[in-house]
Design a protein around this nucleic acid. Structure first.
Ligand SMILES: [Mn+2]
Ligand SMILES: [Mn+2]
Ligand SMILES: [Zn+2]
Ligand SMILES: [Zn+2]
Lengths: 143, 143
DNA sequence: CTTCTTATTGAGAATGATTCTCATTAAGCG
DNA sequence: CGCTTAATGAGAATCATTCTCAATAAGAAG
């Protein structure tokens, strides 16, 4: 079990959640993942750690992790999840629909024309990460 | 039937599509709509014009209109559709999840920091409209 | 360690949106 | 008016997600 898994385990525990083997398996899988995974993919991997895990528990654990701020939902066709980032102000995720890499854009530019327009319109974004789906540089060239 | 409906009818016809009463009803409904509609909403309204319309045809017509560039998909929970805009380069849609208004952001700023970062990353967006979902100024205040 | 409470679980049913199937209909063209 | 076949409507099928519920096990208390 990785360090990050332990941290989350501790935090969940302190928030009153019970630390079950199924939850631990799901969390561990997500921590190990190199890119966002679908619930089915998470299930398959989690069962290698804890064979009895059910799909419903994967969904439920994802909900818990999302509610506690450890996950961000990502939509590439189907729902996917990636680790949440630290940035709390509005910023952008470039999501490659081929390799599912998530590129974080640094948008600290408070002078950014886009953010200025958002402010001017008085619009309040529900999420702090805006998803721009497409192909990363690597995935554009090779067929 | 509105002028825009006639234009689309003409264009679809010239592209080889048959102009059926069902399609006309769906198109007319979309043209009249003040905000994006779900397929079920479109069905209900279309049946007031052509009672025999089926839900499958609503979906099929939406696909046709989208493929021909007349509609943009919008996701507010469920799928929705709005009229496509003229802008072909990457720009932003502020979508209010309460009133479903779609605010077009003018992002002609070729110097825009965000677009510059996209270019620098070599990332190619699949859509030309990026959706920022939240609440418009009007919908934030009244309960 | 054992007991107790109840949050959590797994399996499968249920749901909801979208797509598919297929026999029937009607656009569009002579 | 016929012909050809794209398009249709109804309902089945699919797929992801949520729900139900009896069984289980985490964690607190003793
Ligand atoms: Mn982020
Ligand atoms: Mn637009
Ligand atoms: Zn990629
Ligand atoms: Zn609004």
């Amino acid at each position: 079990m990785r360090k990050r898994t332990r941290d989350i385990q501790k935090a969940l525990s302190e928030s009153g959640y019970r630390i079950t083997q199924s939850r631990l398996a799901v969390i561990e899988v997500i921590m190990r993942a190199r890119h966002s995974l679908s619930p089915e993919e998470i299930l398959a991997r989690a069962r290698k750690i804890e064979p009895s895990v059910g799909l419903a528990t994967v969904y439920r654990t994802l909900d818990v992790l999302h509610a506690e701020g450890y996950l961000e939902r990502v939509r590439i066709g189907n729902k996917g999840y990636t680790l949440a980032c630290e940035e709390k102000s509005l910023h952008f995720h470039l999501i490659c629909e081929r390799c599912r890499t998530v590129i974080e854009l640094q948008s600290n530019h408070s002078s950014d024309a886009l953010l200025a327009q958002l402010r001017a319109a008085g619009f309040k974004s529900r999420k702090n990460a805006v998803e721009i789906v497409g192909l990363c540089a690597k995935c554009q060239s090779p067929e």
